[in-house]
């Protein structure tokens, strides 16, 4: 049953050192506020799962929270590299990062398998690629009906899934629209879930099929306006492409990165204070 609570309380109650977490959201609704809170609470040895690590995992990796990364595309979209991710892989800073590398099709299917209570997913994939040579999470099996060789990939079963959505009602029913990513699958694959939302409302005022998750399937709902920034929340604010570009310079250098995170994330108590500290305003959906 969803409890409507503060983000700091939810992270403190549900996210343990050594846990496997999936913070999902494909370009849209990336739960950055939750990532910051995990950094603030100093969680360590995490296994992080995400199709596109994006800035949210670049920050967690650079702050030393992560032992293992399960992912399928690790770049700053349209800008270039995730420098903290690269520094960890190429130069073991701040410490070595284990990789469990997959393709998008694999990871998307692995969430579906996790949500379906299955140990693995089957897909037509990976044949001829070098990816199956690294790690034991990709195997091949023979279809018992046709004899076709198919890829079997280990399902994803996070301890906690964290997603951001536009709205929840007071019972915790979650409304999410626009690009859906793999958020529903990640939440249903996980033992516990935290959903940060732009606002909590009396009535969702939507058709039932727009309600992505019923309240009893979610552990905690936390109101965090702007909590997806620099990603976007359709209906609320645009993607802050300027911030994605600025991140390239902030994150390129270890000291600059540390100083920025210490000042704006560790030095603030919540996401609202972070936004004021870092001088962030949410870009309105319709330009001037």
């Amino acid at each position: 049953m969803a409890e409507i609570t503060g983000l700091a309380e939810a992270v403190s109650a549900l996210v343990r050192d050594g846990a496997t977490l999936a913070l999902e959201g494909f370009t849209h609704l990336i739960p950055h506020a939750a990532g910051h809170e995990i950094i603030r609470q100093g969680r360590r040895d995490l296994t992080l799962v995400r199709m596109t690590p994006d800035l949210v995992y670049d920050q967690l990796i650079g702050m030393g929270c992560v032992r293992r990364l399960v992912f399928s595309w690790g770049g700053n979209p349209g800008v270039g590299s995730l420098h903290r991710f690269r520094d960890a892989v190429e130069r073991d800073w701040p410490h070595p990062l284990e990789l469990e590398e997959r393709s998008h099709a694999d990871l998307a299917n692995a969430y579906v398998a996790g949500a379906s209570g299955l140990p693995f997913a089957v897909l037509r994939g990976y044949r001829g690629s070098d990816l199956p040579k690294y790690g034991d999470h990709i195997r091949f099996l023979t279809c018992p009906f046709t004899g076709e060789e198919l890829a079997a990939v280990r399902s994803i079963r996070p301890d906690v899934a964290i997603v951001h959505a536009q709205k929840a009602d007071r019972r915790g029913n979650v409304l999410l629209w626009g690009i859906l990513g793999a958020q529903k699958e990640a939440v249903l694959a996980a033992r516990h879930s935290i959903v940060t939302v732009e606002e909590v409302v009396e009535d969702l005022e939507a058709w039932p099929n727009a309600c992505l998750l019923p309240h009893w399937a979610v552990t905690a709902v936390c109101p965090v306006p702007g909590g997806a920034h620099p990603s976007y929340a359709q209906g609320y604010y645009r993607r802050d492409n300027r911030f994605y570009r600025a991140w390239d310079a902030i994150s390129r250098d270890r000291e600059t990165f540390r100083a920025w995170l210490e000042r704006h994330v560790l030095g603030t108590g919540d996401f609202g204070a972070y936004m004021r500290s870092a001088g962030i305003t949410l870009p309105p959906e319709k330009g001037p």
Partner: peptide, 12 residues
């Protein structure tokens, strides 16, 4: 030497 972003959707 250089870690690139990875596969994304391309293999499938």
């Amino acid at each position: 030497k250089v870690r690139l972003p990875g596969a994304g959707g391309a293999p499938e």
